[in-house]
Design a protein around this nucleic acid. Structure first.
Length: 505
RNA sequence: CGGGGUGUGGCGCAGUCUGGUAGCGCGCUUCGUUCGGGACGAAGAGGCCGCAGGUUCGAAUCCUGUCACCCCGACCA
């Protein structure tokens, strides 16, 4: 029993397959009939809603406002910024017609819908909205007094990816994209760093995922950006996932789209823009960072349900009393307790199923706390408490009053233990490397960890090493850019700069 | 876009080579036993075998075409 895992295969046996099975077992999402697109089911979408709510508060608190822009972007807009256009050209879905005609096949008699009404100018389904928001900005900005513009959009975007994977890389995905325009470079860079910091804090304190904040090299930058900041997370197969990015776009887009204003000195100037985003990929990252061989493990702040109460009803005559006690406890928790400002999310599982089935169902769904209440517990005024961050068969009996007192603290303990575990794993797998020989040997291993090296190579040299080992520079970690000078791993030239290398999703 | 593979009840598959009119496991429904636990037994529902042609007395099975999806490369939040 105890040696049986709820998920087959295990992480060690086949990590990619394990990932798919976790999603299925937790009933989070499934592949749809539409190529590369997923159906996000309530348990998965609930996580996204919580991510949205909590991030949105942070955006508002930093002065941003939400707005909404069209899904369809005139093709000509995308052509305006050359690098940007090239970066997204190979993955755009294009709308070319605006009506359908019902045509009957004269032989079979069957009807078919044929696209007609070709558009004069095709539209691209937004892969990102820099260009269409830039067009709006150019109308909105006249004077330095109109700046800064601090806008965020919650939206879906489409990138026709060749190899889709639930949550990590789907053709359509949900995200937020912040777009801001500023009078000066300093101000725009401050904004870029501010939102980078918001992401870092969110990942750590809400998703219990430790990240390395850093800057992307020129090779890895967003198409059209001057500077790309990233938060890189390590998941359990030691691969890297870029969990969020924040870009300083300089005046590239403002010059291309004429987002200009009359400055304080009366001269025409171009704004400095930024963009920043996180997507449903966060959910994939969360799964790969925390889930185990028994399924999903949810950090409490984004758990669709935080506490699930399972009534134990062995005898018909005590059944109603047990159900009443469960509902009463749930009500009290919802009414009297809150966690980081939100009422507790508590669910009573009254389904007519065997207890064991229910228990494992919620284990696989990753609910942080499971409570069981049966007739004996009512008599002793106790509850059986089980935590998802502990063994699946560990249980602790607590006085009901004591549990009420401690529920919120237990949630926070679970958050802390997930974060600690993930941090320890990451730190153990970021390996300093000073010799090229060691560097080359490292990538022959299965699931290699990250290497951190002194680096002052050129983009060309970086590209060569990357292709050779199927790795990339994940980032130049911000806190390691002024280390004592050491010889660059490739060129030998002394450099204060450090690079982190790894395989990525 | 190159290279490989698969399309059969809700899901996973067998049957295709050697044509004869559809089967297994899981799931689902009902009844019963069990149950502080992912249990068991019995009965039952559910498929024009991706689609379109063709060969044949007869096609899931052979032939032609077509569509879709999956895996391995280049691209990526």
């Amino acid at each position: 029993m105890s040696d049986k895992t709820a998920i087959t295969p295990t992480r060690a046996q086949d990590f990619p397959e394990w990932y798919q099975q976790v999603i299925k077992a937790a009933d989070m999402a499934e592949n749809s009939e539409t190529r590369g697109c997923m159906v996000i089911k309530p348990w998965g979408y609930g996580i996204w809603e919580l991510i949205q709510q909590q991030l949105d508060r942070k955006f508002k608190a930093t002065g941003h406002q939400n707005a909404y822009f069209p899904l369809l972007i005139p093709l000509s807009y995308l052509e305006k910024e050359a690098e940007h256009a090239e970066g997204f050209a190979t993955e755009c879905a294009v709308v070319t017609h605006h009506r359908l005609e019902l045509v009957k096949d004269p032989v079979t008699g069957k009807s078919k819908m044929i696209p007609t009404g070709e558009l004069a100018e095709p539209y691209v389904i937004r892969p990102t909205s820099e260009t269409i928001i830039g067009a709006a900005f150019s109308r909105w900005v006249q004077s330095y007094r109109d700046l800064p513009l601090l806008i965020n959009q919650w939206a879906n975007v489409m990138r026709w990816e060749m190899r889709p994977r639930l949550f990590l890389r789907t053709a359509e995905f949900l995200w937020q994209e912040g777009h801001t325009a500023h009078e000066t470079q300093d101000e725009a860079i401050t904004e870029t760093r501010l939102m980078h910091g918001v992401y870092e804090e969110f990942l750590k304190n809400h998703l219990a995922i430790p990240v390395i904040p850093g800057e992307k090299t020129e090779n890895e930058r967003f198409p059209g950006a001057e500077m790309t900041l990233t938060v890189e997370s390590m998941v359990q197969d030691r691969k890297a996932i870029q969990a969020g990015t924040s870009h300083y776009l300089g005046q590239n887009f403002s010059e291309a789209q004429d987002i200009s204003f009359t400055g304080r000195d009366g001269s025409k100037q171009f704004v400095h823009t930024t963009s920043w985003g996180v997507s449903t990929r966060l959910i994939g990252t969360l799964i790969m960072a925390h889930a185990d061989d028994d399924g999903l493990v949810l950090p409490p702040r984004v758990a669709t349900q935080q506490i699930v109460i399972i009534p134990v009803t062995p005898k018909e005559d005590t059944r109603q009393a047990v159900l009443d006690a469960c509902q009463a406890l749930a009500e009290t928790l919802r009414r009297e307790k809150n966690y980081h400002g939100d009422p507790l999310r508590v669910h009573v599982d009254t389904r007519d199923l065997q207890g064991g089935v229910k228990k494992w169902d919620w284990v696989k769904k990753g609910v942080p706390i499971r409570i069981e209440i049966g007739p004996r517990d009512i008599e002793t005024r106790k509850v059986c408490v089980q935590r998802r961050d502990k063994g699946s068969n560990e249980k602790e009996f607590m006085e009901k009053e004591e549990f009420l007192q401690q529920a919120v603290d237990i949630l926070q303990e679970i958050h802390n233990s997930l974060l600690e575990r993930a941090t320890a794993f990451r730190d153990a797998n970021i390996i300093p490397c000073a010799s090229l020989e060691t560097f080359h040997a490292h990538w022959a291993q299965d699931n290699p960890g990250w290497l951190i090296t002194p680096w002052s190579g050129t983009p060309g040299q970086e590209d060569e090493l990357s292709k050779q080992h199927k790795i990339t520079i994940r980032c130049l970690p911000l806190d390691k850019q002024a280390e004592p000078a050491e010889p660059c791993i490739l060129t030998g030239a002394p450099t204060p700069s450090r690079a982190i290398w790894g395989r990525s999703y």
